[in-house]
């Protein structure tokens, strides 16, 4: 396509070509600071990751003596020690269960709610949407004590089920608001014609709204997965310390000792907990980037 356009275009005179080259060159020079800043930013992100990776193969002595040096040998002893000491296998299973179930539950509640709000025309819809927005105003700590009391009252304190029920409650405001905005981009005419063809509300949601809002759903999913996976305070307090219930984020600090922490083992354990998050991001990143791109084009 580009070639055809270029072929039809009359050749630029030499002076114009020179100007264009100068313009490109000037633009290139103008972009140098941006490139430098971008690389610096990338470096800032990579340095801590590099530090954790190399530390996972070192002893405490090496970590403190040569923090950024490459390990002198590659041994996976720190990984196996972290795995057994923190019971990471069970903890990973708990994290996957809690994170996955909570994410599914959040979508199951947020998608219909967002669909309803996106199509609502009356004041009630606006009021409900604002109600969801109010969820942002509640600080986490403010919810902690009532939540603990609630868990105790319903007899679900220090259980996985309460954590699974609690997580979606924290994620719903953002999920609903984001998905509502995505669903508003669906032309009403599509829904009207489908309805005229006899499609039910469910069919409209399933076959029209969901495919179009898929980048938004992916974005919400990945944000929720990251939040649920990394959640520490609430899972520590609401889930409790039992090795059979605790998540990786609660299990990992058991590798920390006030008097003598083995930082190589801790770094190895940290890497193990990062892998599932990284995999989830890889799987959903394309959809998330599409969503961001959509937002950029619209704006």
């Amino acid at each position: 396509m580009t070639t055809t356009t270029e072929a039809r275009r009359p050749a630029a005179p030499p002076a114009a070509r020179t100007n264009k080259t100068q313009r490109h060159s000037g633009r290139g020079r103008a972009l140098v600071p941006a490139h430098v800043l971008a690389w610096l930013y990338a470096l800032l992100l990579v340095i801590p990751l590099y530090y954790v990776v190399v530390s996972a193969f070192k002893t405490n002595g090496d970590i403190f003596a040569h923090p950024f040096a490459l390990p002198t040998s590659i041994s996976f002893d720190n990984f196996s020690t972290a795995w057994s000491r923190a019971n990471l296998g069970t903890a990973l299973a708990n994290s996957v269960l809690i994170t996955g179930t909570s994410a599914v539950l959040t979508l199951a509640l947020a998608v219909p709610a967002a669909y309803g709000l996106a199509r609502a025309r009356g004041r009630l819809g606006t009021a409900v949407e604002r109600l969801f927005s109010l969820g942002f105003l509640i600080p986490g700590f403010a919810a902690l004590v009532p939540t603990v009391l609630l868990a105790i009252a319903v007899g679900l304190f220090q259980t996985r089920i309460f954590v699974i029920l609690f997580m979606p409650a924290t994620a719903l405001p953002l999920s609903v608001i984001l998905l509502t905005q995505f669903m508003r981009t669906v032309p009403p005419e599509l829904e009207e014609s489908a309805t005229l063809d006899g499609a039910s509300r469910w069919v409209v949601l399933r076959h029209i709204y969901l495919p179009i809002a898929m980048p938004g759903i992916a974005t919400v999913t990945i944000l929720n997965l990251l939040n649920f996976w990394n959640e520490y305070l609430f899972t520590l307090i609401l889930g409790g310390p039992s090795p059979s219930v605790r998540t990786v984020q609660v299990a990992l600090p058991t590798l920390v000792s006030q008097t003598s922490t083995d930082y190589g083992v801790l770094a190895a354990g940290t890497l193990v907990t990062l892998v599932p998050v990284y995999v989830a991001y890889i799987l959903l990143s394309r959809q998330m980037e599409d969503a961001l791109l959509q937002g950029a084009v619209k704006s």
Partner: peptide, 22 residues
């Protein structure tokens, strides 16, 4: 014996467990 090796978070975890009677 159910062993809860909570390490450094012991006091925080224990106190909240007391609150729940567990």
């Amino acid at each position: 014996v159910e062993w809860l090796d909570t390490g450094e978070s012991l006091s925080d975890v224990y106190e909240t467990s007391v609150a729940g009677g567990s």
